[in-house]
Design a protein around this nucleic acid. Structure first.
Length: 468
RNA sequence: GCUCCCUUCGUCUAGUGGCCCAGGACACCGCCCUCUCAAGGCGGGAACACGAGUUCGAGUCUCGUAGGGAGCACCA
């Protein structure tokens, strides 16, 4: 039997980090086993579902590269089917209509709570159904009264549930929409899902869903419940923790495969391996190796991974994404050096493309601000003017313009003037960038372009020698 | 309150009864390298929640305690 997994978000917000990991694990499981990955949109909550959220989820999935084989299937497009199945259940005596009022239900709940028990529906309408004029009844599933439900969760292990803990849940609301627990089961059966991989906030739903499978005479799929992802403070992830939507990570300068690599290791491991290419993930991923406990989101480690990929990926391949960030920062890539060259100069110094874009500004726009301390220390230093002038001449005379040739020129200036590299590099750094910190001096100068570099050295020379 | 689940360095984790006085990675600290900042190299501190039990032997098995989480909706 070919493996079929599905990711089934409800479109009430963007694709957050927890959902992205669930989607990744579903996708990996399908790819690893040579099966299919289906995307289903659980939009039966008409109050909270929005088209914008659907789009946000699709965008997030696409950016991450989690391609689905079927879908997106919208539950709202399957209403007739849910109704058909529910009607069948009623006909078979496995479900019934219920007219119980909200008041009666509330009273029941309060009573149970007061008695220190778990609130459960008492099954009143199983036998005493009294149609109330003008009221559309809900449909309840007739849950078995006795026995236990046992399932072998692929990550949590064996879980056993007594049917006495379960009650007759509503499977169809009075507004004509099916409830979650019912729609998922009908969908998972119809879509022939073999592996249900979802957040562990659903373990409690699983026994009642299994009972529905049984009532429908359908085979029960494998279940794997993933532990939660918490914020760095160990609290449930929320808006307080900042960037939540996956697309926010793009805006913040993270690479999709860096995020994927981070996510795959968060709660799953393969020995001591930290770095995984997509194909390694697919080859090595096993749902059985997923951890049981919740884990915390650690931005520092994501940053480390992101930089790892900035350093090891082909700069040319990274260039389009970097150019996107330059534009996002209000920089026109056409007004300066090739983005790929900038990546080479900065990738050892930043963890994100966003930081990189910010630092790249000096090569695309004039120096906006001079660091007074740097000017004082390096530009107005003893001999700085002489060195700048010598560098200017050496750079102007260079037959070819490349990081290597620039490096050679600076080295020759240092040798000729009989000073260390630092003595000539620092004034030049301030001349080109206005600050004492930048990439290696040859890249700093190279990226400015010869004309602009010489122009800036001229300006710096004036500052170096100006009185005061 | 009830039911279910979870518990190894600050964080992510390795560990499936002896190979573990617990290994790796991120973070942190130190040293080296060095044109600044980084990156890199080398080194360091840092954990089996607690208590019983089973066993020749327990991070690994059992029970209890504590702490954390989820669910108990006509929300998904």
């Amino acid at each position: 039997m070919t493996v079929r997994t599905r990711f089934a978000p409800s479109p009430t917000g963007y694709l957050h980090i927890g959902g992205a990991r669930t989607a990744l694990y579903c996708w990996l499981q399908a790819r690893h086993r040579g099966g299919q990955f289906i995307l289903r949109v659980e939009d039966t909550d008409r109050e909270r579902s929005t088209d914008a959220a659907v789009q946000a989820i699709l965008d997030g999935m696409q950016w991450l590269g989690l391609a689905w084989d079927e879908g997106p299937v919208f539950q709202t497009a399957r209403m007739d089917r849910y109704r058909e199945v529910a009607t069948g259940l009623i006909a078979a005596g496995k479900a019934y209509r219920c007219w119980c009022s909200r008041e009666r239900l509330d009273a029941l709940r309060a009573q149970a709570l007061a008695a220190g028990a778990k609130p459960r529906y008492d099954g009143h309408c199983r036998t005493h159904a009294e149609p109330v004029p003008g009221i559309t009844p809900v449909i309840r599933f007739r849950n078995p009264d006795a026995g236990t439900v046992v399932f072998d969760d692929r990550v949590k292990g064996r879980i056993e549930w007594s049917n006495s803990e379960l009650d007759d849940l509503v499977i169809f609301r009075s507004d004509g929409y099916p409830t979650y627990n019912f729609a998922v089961v009908v969908d998972d059966i119809d879509m022939r899902i073999t592996d249900v991989i979802r957040g562990d906030d659903h373990v409690n739903n699983t026994p009642r869903q299994i009972n529905i499978y049984a009532a429908l005479g359908a085979p029960v799929p494998d279940f794997a419940h993933l532990p939660m992802i918490l914020g760095a403070d160990g609290q449930k992830l929320s808006k307080r923790h900042g960037a939540l939507g996956v697309m926010q990570y793009r805006d913040d300068g993270y690479l999709p495969h860096a995020l994927l690599n981070y996510l795959v290791r968060l709660g799953w491991s393969h020995g001591d391996q930290e770095i995984f290419t997509l194909s390694e993930m697919i080859a090595l991923f096993d749902i059985a190796d997923v951890n049981k406990a919740a884990s915390r989101f650690d931005l520092a480690k994501l940053g480390w991974l992101n930089q790892h990929y900035l350093k090891t990926d082909d700069p040319v391949a990274l260039a389009p994404e970097f150019a996107w960030h330059l534009r996002a920062a209000g920089i026109d890539p056409a007004t300066g050096p090739a983005p790929a060259d900038v990546i080479v100069a900065l990738r050892d110094r930043v963890q994100t493309l966003k930081e990189m874009a910010a630092r790249a500004r000096i090569w695309y726009a004039p120096i906006a601000q001079w660091d007074a301390r740097a000017v004082e220390k390096h530009l107005r230093a003893e001999g700085a003017a002489t060195l700048l002038a010598a560098a200017h001449a050496a750079l102007a005379a260079l037959p070819a313009w490349s990081p290597e040739s620039v490096h050679g020129a600076i080295e020759r200036v240092a040798a000729t003037q009989d000073v260390g590299m630092g003595k000539v590099a620092q004034p030049l750094r301030v001349a080109i960038t206005g600050t004492a910190v930048s990439p290696s001096i040859e890249h700093t100068i190279y990226l400015a372009g010869r004309d602009e570099a010489l122009r800036r050295i001229d300006v710096a020379l004036a500052r170096a020698t100006a009185p005061g």
